[in-house]
Design a protein around this nucleic acid. Structure first.
Lengths: 228, 228
DNA sequence: TGCCGTGATCTGAGATCACAGTTGCAGCCG
DNA sequence: CGGCTGCAACTGTGATCTCAGATCACGGCA
C-alpha cells in the first residue's frame, strides 16, 4: 500500500446532532410535523435513543433556518404561518426557484439532464403507491436534482431552507387520496420542465417551476386552513 | 390597572445563546472575524464570561446559516471561499437584494423613506470617522432599512444570512484608509438608490443596489486574496 | 537532518445535573 | 358553576463533566 493508492476513502462519521437534524428535516419536509406542533427535546431525545445534547444542537440549527421557532414561553414549535406569511414565503420561493430552474436549463450537464429524467420517472412510479409519502419524497428529489444542476450551491442552500419552512404547510395532513391527487397535479408541470431543460429553454423552465409552486400554494390558500 | 392598560410591555429576556449569536454575527459582519479564522468555543465562552453551552447553541445556529463551517477535524471556522464560491455568493445576493430593493421602491411607507434618508445621513457622517467600523455598520444599517421596507420578512432573513457569509470577506482586514475609501465608494450608489426609492422607480433602485454589490465584489476579486 | 513515535494538551461532542419558568390539574371558595 | 390558588410535572437553559479525537512538541534513531 503506497500513497498512490486511491481506493481508500476518508471516513466521515456524521455527528449525532447532524443525524437528528436530518431526521427532523425529513419530518418537516414530509408533513409528519405540522404547523404549530410542539417539539419536546426530551421526548424526542428519548424516542431517538440519544441524550438531549444532539437534539439541542439540531433544534438550534433548525431555529436558525427559520424552520422551527422559539415561542415566548420558550417552547419550540413548527411555525404557524398566517396566509400573508405563507404568500411571502411563496413569493420568495418563486423568485429563487425560478432563477435556479433557468440557470439549470442553461448549465445542466448531460449527466444531470439524465438524472432529472430518472427523477421524473421515479416520481411517476411513486404516484402509483397507495401511500402518499413516496410521491412527496420523489417530488422533492426531482426539484433538488434540478436546482443542483443550477451550479449555484449558495442558491441551493437558500432554497433548501425555504423548503423546510414550506414543507409542513404544503403537506398538511390531508387524506391520503387528496394528498396523492394533489401531488399528481405536478406531473404536467414536471413534464414541461423536463422538456424545457432538454431544450435549454431557461424561460420555459422557470415558467414551469413557477406554475408548479403557485399551483400548490393556491390549493393551500383555497382551503382556509391558515389563519388570516 | 385593568386589562385595557396598554402601557405594560411584555418582558422578553434574550437568552445567553441569542446574545452570543448576536455578538458573533456582529463580528462576522464587521470583519473582526476573517475567512479561515478558527473559533474555539471554550476560549470564546471564557472571554464572554459564560459557559460553553450558550456558545455551542450560537455556533450551531451560525453553522446552519452557513456563516460558520465545521471542518473535517471538527474545528469550527469562518468559511474560506474560493473565488468561484464568492462569485456564486455575489450572484445570489444580487438576485435577492435587487428584488428587495425593487419591492421597497414600490412598497416603502413614508416613514420608511424617511428612515432611509436618516440612514443615508448617518452613513455620510460615519465616513468622517478615522475608524472604518462606524461606516461599515452604517452601510449595513442603510441596506437593511431598505430591505425591511420591501415588506417581505422571509426575503430579509435570506439576505441576512447571505450578509453573514459575505461580511468577513468584504471587510477583510484592510488598512483602515483603504477600508474607509472602499466603503465611501458606496456613496454614489446610495444616493442613486435614495433618489430611486423617493421616485418609486423600482428598476433604478435595483440597478443601484446591483452596482453597489458588484463594485464591492469586483474590488475583492481584483486583489487576489481568495484562493482559486 | 529528517522522520517517527510518544506523551501532553486542547478541542468538540455527548451525557448528566440543577435551576427557574411554565403548564395543567385538582381542590376550594364564593 | 366559575374563578382562583397551590402543587406536581414538564420544559428549556445553562453549568459541568467525561470521552475520544486531533494537534503539537519533544526526543530518539537512522
Amino acid at each position: 500500500m503506497t500513497s498512490q493508492d486511491n481506493t481508500i476513502t476518508p471516513i466521515r462519521v456524521a455527528s449525532l446532532a447532524s443525524q437528528v437534524h436530518d431526521a427532523l428535516a425529513e419530518m418537516l419536509l414530509s408533513g409528519a410535523l405540522r404547523p404549530d406542533d410542539r417539539i419536546s427535546m426530551r421526548d424526542l431525545a428519548e424516542r431517538l435513543g440519544v441524550s438531549v445534547m444532539p437534539v439541542r444542537d439540531a433544534v438550534a440549527r433548525l431555529v436558525a433556518q427559520q424552520a422551527l421557532v422559539v415561542l415566548p414561553n420558550r417552547a419550540v414549535a413548527v411555525p404557524l404561518l398566517t396566509r400573508g406569511q405563507f404568500r411571502d414565503l411563496t413569493e420568495v420561493r418563486v423568485h429563487n426557484e425560478t432563477h435556479a430552474a433557468a440557470l439549470a436549463a442553461r448549465r445542466a450537464t448531460q449527466a444531470q439532464v439524465a438524472a432529472l429524467r430518472r427523477a421524473d420517472l421515479a416520481f411517476e412510479q411513486a404516484l402509483a403507491a397507495a401511500d402518499a409519502k413516496p410521491a412527496v419524497k420523489a417530488n422533492k428529489d426531482l426539484h433538488f436534482v434540478l436546482y443542483e444542476a443550477a451550479g449555484s450551491p449558495v442558491l441551493v442552500e437558500v432554497i433548501g431552507a425555504l423548503w423546510l419552512k414550506a414543507g409542513p404547510i404544503i403537506n398538511l395532513d390531508l387524506e391520503q387520496d387528496t394528498r396523492r391527487r394533489r401531488t399528481a397535479v405536478s406531473r404536467g408541470w414536471h413534464a414541461r420542465l423536463l422538456q424545457a431543460v432538454e431544450a435549454r429553454d431557461a424561460q420555459a423552465a422557470a415558467d414551469a417551476v413557477e406554475a408548479d409552486i403557485r399551483s400548490a400554494s393556491e390549493f393551500i390558500l383555497s382551503r382556509d386552513i391558515l389563519p388570516a
